[in-house]
Amino acid sequence: MTGPVVVVTGGTRGIGQGLVRAFTEAGASVAFCGRSDASVQGAGAPGGALGVVADVTNRNDVRKLWDAVADRFGRVDIWVNNAGLSTSRRKLWELDPAEIDAVVDVNLRGTLQASAVVLEAMLAQGHGALWNMEGLGSNGQIVAGLTPYGATKRGLTYATKAMAKELAGTPVTVGLLSPGMVVTDLLTRDYSPEELEQARKIFNILADRVETVTPWLAAKVLAGVKNGGRVAWLTNRKAAYRFATAAFRRRDLFAGT
């Protein structure tokens, strides 16, 4: 084993699944987790990747995941906190309380609990890089119908910057990973057919497929950034360029779906 050892939480679908494949193709030794044996077994992970059943909101599960990776590969060099949920696209008072709790638990509480375990272990081993996944709301953007999700991502950005201050002067770093708008079930859920038809016009300008974004993100993560750094696929400049050239660039990200 010569490549880095990378862990991706929530690596059984969507962006997480894409990252597992991209890191593997880049020569890394990769581990991932899902919340059930069925999701881990059905992830279609590349050969050599280690799948572990773990709930990121449970510190014991996170420690179990860390230990399983260390036992298999000898260490953990990079950890990506990717696991995340979104509520239904509804007003806050229309949401089931359990749905709100689940999103806050995984996106914010789970990332904080997992980060606490991982950072302590990385400091003990003398090196490591932790990455937290941004999302809608991280930059202060407000979207009606996604209040709990946006609030957790806004809080996560603060938490990551605070972790960076706490890690200053150590051999461990923390960074923010921003995939932008990616075509997954989280992006397109809960639209009526008419609403989705309108939303697709924006998606076809700003969004990208998982297989486009994740190899670029993986390469940036493997290259590393300074403590507290941020890697973003969809920058403001790129978004402005896409809107300016939309009339000349015909994209259909949903062809065949």
Rank of each mutant, 00 (worst) to 15 (best):
E120F: 03
V5T: 08
D77Q: 07
M181N: 13
L206E: 15
R90C: 00
G140M: 01
T188K: 11
M181P: 05
S86H: 13
K161H: 12
R21I: 10
D96C: 03
Q17K: 13
V76E: 05
I202T: 06
E211H: 11
P4R: 14
A244H: 04
V62W: 07
A49T: 13
M1Y: 04
W93V: 07
A218V: 06
A162H: 03
K91R: 15
T87V: 02
T160I: 09
D55A: 09
G47D: 14
L136H: 12
G180S: 10
A162V: 05
G11V: 01
A255D: 07
V20R: 12
S88G: 03
Y241D: 08
A219T: 13
K165D: 14
G137C: 10
L123D: 04
W233Y: 12
T111C: 14
N204G: 08
R63V: 05
L217K: 04
N82F: 09
V30T: 10
G51T: 12
Q198W: 00
A70E: 02
G128W: 12
L222N: 10
L95C: 00
G145M: 11
E99C: 00
G135W: 05
V143E: 13
E94Q: 12
L85G: 02
D252F: 05
V231Q: 07
P215W: 03
V52Q: 08
F32P: 06
A43E: 06
V40P: 01
R230C: 07
T147H: 06
G145C: 10
G16W: 00
A121L: 00
E25V: 09
N107G: 15
L130K: 06
E134D: 13
L222I: 14
D96K: 03
K153P: 01
I78F: 02
R21T: 12
L123H: 08
R13A: 05
K91E: 11
R109T: 11
A28P: 05
V183K: 01
K91G: 12
W233I: 06
W233M: 04
L196W: 07
A22I: 02
